[in-house]
Computed example of a mutant assay.
Amino acid sequence: MPLGVVIRRMPGVTRWAKWTWKAVAVLPGAADADWKVLRQEGEATEYHAATKPLELFRTDTEGYLHGLSAKEPAIYVIMREGEGDAPLDVVMVTASPYEAQDYADTGEELVEKVAMPGGLIAWVRDYVEKYHEDEVFVKRKRDKKRTDLAETGIGDERISQMTDVYRAPGRKGQVH
């Protein structure tokens, strides 16, 4: 589903940052846009910065389910510093908090959490109900082989085991 990303520009609060940029909304089913001005209020301006596809994958349904169970379900907008005239490049949008965390961990991208509209919540929930399969936890069992019977790996193999196994080897002719 195509999602339009709305970004708000506000005056900066320090002399080093002239503007602050924040993703504030998504527009489900939006047409393509390239930093189209949507609204201006005083010094604040909202732009339809880009339209990116929201893709859902069967393997990520656990993440979508986790996101839907949050107090306020969200879409995550991943952005980078802009190249050229645009202040920010919208890289992608995702409904998975796990995927958003992966991008946030790199430190190269900006990840903004935006409230998910009601119709989009229903769309993602329908997808999860159709494709989610609970993974059954299988506890790993140890094999019955006893590993404490052999004394492999103790000490240095260059020293005969009849002597101190924890002694460091020396050079030939050197007394320890």
Rank of each mutant, 00 (worst) to 15 (best):
I78F: 04
A150C: 05
G155R: 01
Y76N: 00
Q101Y: 13
W35V: 00
V138Y: 12
D126L: 08
A100T: 01
G155V: 02
T94F: 00
G42L: 00
G42C: 01
R142P: 12
E43D: 14
W35T: 00
L27S: 13
H132F: 14
A17L: 09
W35F: 05
V6N: 02
K139V: 07
W35D: 02
T152H: 10
P28L: 06
H48D: 01
R9Y: 09
R171G: 13
G82R: 13
L120H: 01
Y64L: 10
R142N: 14
I78K: 00
A23F: 06
A100V: 00
V5T: 06
K144M: 06
L149Y: 08
D60C: 11
K36A: 09
G107E: 08
S160T: 07
L110D: 05
T14K: 01
I7W: 01
V93K: 00
D102W: 12
A23E: 06
V26R: 02
S96V: 04
P169G: 03
Y64T: 03
A95C: 04
K36Y: 07
V37G: 05
S69G: 08
D148S: 03
P28H: 06
V93A: 03
G12W: 07
M92S: 15
S69L: 09
K172S: 13
G173H: 07
M10A: 15
R158N: 14
Y47H: 12
E46W: 05
A95F: 02
K130V: 06
R39A: 15
K71D: 15
L68H: 03
R142G: 15
G170F: 04
M162S: 13
K22R: 15
A104I: 04
W19R: 12
